[in-house]
Design a protein around this nucleic acid. Structure first.
Lengths: 268, 268
DNA sequence: AGGGCGCGTACGGGATGTGTAAAGACGGCC
DNA sequence: GGCCGTCTTTACACATCCCGTACGCGCCCT
């Protein structure tokens, strides 16, 4: 085994090769011009690998290829592909373990190709971290469509929602108070506001859905558990408590709005 | 058949909630704590819908159900599901159009179920915005695995950086007023218009079917329940109320049109 | 013309939902 | 044991909503 070459890729002028900047946060496109999607094809059947590579290149994808798991993992690290096509039947390692190894440090979408069509195999692969699973033989057009779907999800996420985000994105501010979602801290008028766990849990749900009305049923369900009906007045008590601590005029709330008969809403 | 009564399914009374749970995101609550994943099941085959609902609830998912496209889109806006299971063979709208309509303002993962197994259908659905595609009959375990895969992608993002599935969309605007479906809020002339739950429920149905005539029977059924005939004048009363609050000249409505003998229509 | 019929409007009482305060219950911690 | 913070429960005042009834209006129809 391990008859694999080093890189499978030898594509036309691609890849910033050696001198590429690291961009450890995951940003990929460093070069100018086309933001080509980078695909890593992992397939030990040389014929199928060739077919995939040719088809993908024809669609203007930037293709790398690997014929064994070791190379695949290395290329996944060094080439930072946008998506990985992974055959589960590799010679040197169990496919599931490849996914697990990859998921230890990388979240790139993984589209599994496999000859095994049983539910068991699919479930194991998906739960190990795969994003999709296709059984051979498959339609090339369908593969391309699933590829588009997988990459679309990445492109759509605003890019600041990726891994780093340790940044300051998790603080919600109003004219009256500020809420630090990660630090679980609330400040108002220069002082820290003490919230009980239940108060915090309730506030968190509302703050995380700014401008959205959250039904009482959902609030009760998420804070107190599924077996609580709206007949109790936990919500009323705790909303009053929150308003007392956060609003300038608790009897005329500006931020924690109640929509009678429907639910509550946090207004930014 | 099997028209949805008010909201989706609502089977209650089961499981007195688990005790303290762990929630990997760090929240250390003592009670309900687990932010249950919310699934919207869209399936017109009542039997299959039932099976899915039961299975998902047994897995501790929070399930809503819709049996037609219009209801599905409405619930997608108002209930904020974390993932949608969508049957493509709905009675009132083409499945592809449902996905497109949804994607106009919402990014929630969509897992398509369809009896059609051709590549063409899969490709159209995926390119319209679906995240995955399964053909009937399918293995329930595989469905659950794909569901986990779809939701895992969401859960992995830091939870605060994602705009709660939807962007700022889900707002319907006319020359006279604007309706925020997710916030359940109506603004007109710079002021918030207070709607009662019944008024809102009625308006919601009409707004979610722009330009199409909704029969009185259906409105009565969805708002007041299945046992109400068109002999009552609830509809008249509440339509008058809505017009009073939304129309510039309530006696000559421009947006909430009545089609004598048939029903009502929202004109955009 | 008159009488159905469908639609819009007005109004009051009972029912329901909400805010608020305060007291009991529970558990942890010196 | 006694203190303390938190959660739960009860009770009540108040606002609002829903519903039922009643009435006026325009239209079509035989």
């Amino acid at each position: 085994m391990a008859l694999s070459p080093t890189h499978g890729s030898r594509q036309s002028g691609n890849v910033p090769a050696a001198g590429s900047r690291r961009a450890s946060d995951g940003t990929l496109k460093t070069k100018g011009s086309t933001p080509m999607t980078r695909v890593l094809v992992v397939e030990d059947d040389a014929q199928l690998a060739r077919a995939l590579t040719i088809n993908l290149k024809a669609r203007k994808y930037d293709v790398d290829a690997a014929y064994d798991a070791a190379t695949a993992l290395r290329l996944a690290a060094t080439e930072q592909p946008d998506v990985i096509l992974l055959d589960l039947g590799l010679p040197d390692m169990d496919g599931i373990d490849v996914i697990r190894a990859l998921r230890g440090w990388n979240r790139v979408p993984v589209l599994v190709l496999s000859a095994r069509s049983g539910s068991e195999d699919k479930i194991r692969a998906l739960d190990a971290g795969a994003d999709d699973y296709m059984t051979k033989p498959f339609s090339m057009d369908e593969l391309l469509a699933r590829l588009r779907a997988a990459t679309r999800r990445i492109e759509e996420t605003p890019a600041h929602a990726r891994p780093s985000t340790g940044a300051a994105g998790a603080v919600v501010t109003t004219d009256e108070f500020t809420v630090d979602l990660m630090g679980k801290k609330v400040r108002r008028g220069g002082h820290d506001v003490r919230l009980t766990p239940t108060e915090w849990h309730l506030l968190e749900i509302l703050i995380c859905n700014p401008g959205v009305l959250v039904s009482q049923q959902r609030l009760l369900k998420e804070v107190w558990g599924p077996s609580y009906s709206t007949k109790t007045n936990y919500l009323r008590v705790y909303m009053a408590q929150l308003r007392r601590k956060l609003e300038a005029d608790p009897s005329h709330p500006r931020y924690l709005i109640t929509e009678p008969g429907m639910g509550y809403r946090f207004e930014a």
